[in-house]
Design a protein around this nucleic acid. Structure first.
Lengths: 106, 106
DNA sequence: TCGTTATTTCGACGGTACTGGAAATATGGG
DNA sequence: CCCATATTTCCAGTACCGTCGAAATAACGA
């Protein structure tokens, strides 16, 4: 994963409202939730929610799928794994620590 | 971990320059690096770096320790673990998935 | 005390984010 | 075709961010 991409995703998650939206979707699981359902849960204006969802979608943290008039939103678990991996990877790469990926410890 | 705190940390990591700084420190391991060393590695003005380090310190992602005239910066691995945990926790809590923490699957 | 190195604080500018109401668009039903 | 529902786009205002040069501060040695 590129640093720029990771930064974009982290920035997207760095807004309390968006983080709430994202967490709501993560909790919802693979079935996802309609936009309106998320709005109900969080109690924020539709336009604000739409903006935030857009950001999350642009960074590929969330996907949307149309089902008739409602849009189903889902957390992109693959993207989350990649992001978590990026943060943890190369931990102590130049020093060697217990949590280091390989067995290149000192 | 509180959502607000997590959002602050994610926001702190959401800037490309800061993410670079943080990664540099993560790679450096428990011994940390002097500010000047980070500056050399990244080639950014001292004032800019100081500004970003300050943000990282405020969010507890980085710590500083004085050694004579130089300041040693270290990634706070405990904080990182907590943040990663926060993102992963309650995955599919309302649906149940393979990666779910407990055995409360449907 | 004075000078030197390391680092932060100050000040300013341009840019971009967050928010939310109103209007526009998309989809399906009658 | 017209309506109703779901969602987005448009617009605007306030606020905060990122950047960096210059000046201030911290710590040490002579």
């Amino acid at each position: 994963m590129k640093l720029e991409q990771a930064a974009k995703q982290l920035e997207a998650l760095g807004n309390p409202t968006r983080l709430q939206v994202y967490r709501t979707l993560v909790r919802a699981g693979p079935n996802g939730l309609p936009v309106s359902r998320v709005q109900e849960k969080l109690g924020i204006p539709a336009s604000t929610l739409s903006h935030h969802l857009h950001r999350l979608i642009l960074t590929e943290l969330v996907t949307q799928e149309r089902q008739a008039t409602t849009l189903i939103c889902r957390a992109n678990y693959t993207a989350m794994d990649a992001l978590l991996g990026f943060l943890a990877e190369e931990c102590c790469a130049e020093a060697g620590c217990a949590a280091a990926s390989g067995e290149q410890a000192a």
